[in-house]
């Protein structure tokens, strides 16, 4: 079972701070939907509004046929929420936490064991251990188990992979993909751009605005301008040395061991010559410029810059 989520012109202010500025979006049934953006972009506020932990200043939220203001009790029954900060009971054991959440939703661990088996089996050997004594990765799995125990139709995960190492992050996403196959609608937020490509669709957020709402493929396809990667013998000083290179060059960003340069209306030969003439007097050697395809992070940098 799954539901769609419809958000229409949603506004939320905290005193003078506009946390969400008229956001509208739809999440389809069974979709794995990503909210991508830095701290302070409004991801958590949006999740707290959907889960009725906050009330909006304006706009509507519908989860299935339920309205967030009128039917919040119904929405809570069908929503599983894993907050960004670990919010289970530290002084209860793994098993006690699960039983507690199952009981609140009028079910039992035994009845819904099959729903959480994939996640829970990994921490079951430690079921007598207090939640406060678990490692970070194990806490995360317990929180996910608790969010799933009442068979929600909508699962909301607020930055489940922040501070998690690259391998555990991959494993977590494999788990989400598997869960999605059971038909549940999943909304997940992350500050890691590379995780965007694992979602069906993503919303790129910044300062309470939606910069883009698309499939990861389309975000990349809609990238305007040309993207080049540059490497030289001195990558440490490269950004400082490229200051003022100008003429047709829009942006210069470090990208792993290379530098990514965006340009528009300028051919390779001209760009190549401009950069070589600019860098060679500053002692750079082995200057190599190649055209590359943008990644999600390039698109985000570009969209951020336009706004």
């Amino acid at each position: 079972m799954s539901v769609r989520v419809e958000i229409n012109k949603l506004v939320k202010n905290f005193e003078k701070v506009e946390a969400l500025k008229e956001i509208s979006l739809k999440v389809e049934e069974g979709e794995l939907f990503g909210l991508i953006g830095p701290d302070g972009s409004g991801k958590t506020t949006l999740f707290r509004l959907i889960t009725n932990l906050l009330v909006q200043n304006n706009g509507t939220i519908k989860v299935g046929d339920y309205d967030s203001r009128k039917d919040f009790k119904e929405i809570r029954k069908i929503t599983g929420y894993m907050p960004g900060r670990f919010s289970l009971y530290h002084d209860l054991s793994v098993e006690e936490n699960l039983n507690f959440y199952a009981h609140i939703f009028n079910t039992t661990l035994k009845e819904n064991y099959h729903l959480i088996k994939d996640v829970y089996s990994q921490i079951e050997p430690f079921k007598k251990r207090k939640a406060g004594d678990l490692s970070g990765g194990m806490k995360q799995k317990l929180a996910l188990s608790c969010a799933l125990i009442h068979k929600p139709e909508l699962l909301i995960l607020d930055e489940p992979t922040t501070g998690v190492d690259a391998v555990s992050r991959k494993e977590f996403w494999e788990l989400l993909k598997k869960m999605q196959k059971t038909g549940i609608t999943i909304m997940v937020s992350t500050p890691y751009m590379d995780e965007a490509s694992l979602c069906d669709r993503v919303a790129l957020m910044q300062n309470g605005n939606l910069l883009a709402l698309e499939t990861p493929e389309n975000i990349v396809n809609q990238y305007s301008g040309d993207l080049w990667q540059l490497s030289t013998s001195n990558m440490i000083k490269i950004i400082v040395d490229l200051e003022g290179v100008g003429n047709g060059i829009k942006n210069i960003f470090r990208f792993g061991e290379k530098v990514h340069i965006t340009s528009s209306g300028i051919e390779f030969e001209e760009l190549n010559k401009t950069i070589i003439d600019f860098l060679e007097p500053k002692g750079h050697e082995n200057i190599i410029i190649e055209k590359v395809e943008p990644q999600i992070e390039d698109c985000f940098l570009d969209l951020m810059d336009e706004n």
Binding site: G37, P38, D39, S41, T162, G163, P191, M193, Q206, F253, R254, E297, F300, L301, M304, D305
Partner: peptide, 12 residues
């Protein structure tokens, strides 16, 4: 972990 949680421009 000095740069956790910030946008890609600020990280750079």
């Amino acid at each position: 972990e000095p740069t956790g949680g910030v946008d890609p421009i600020t990280r750079r």
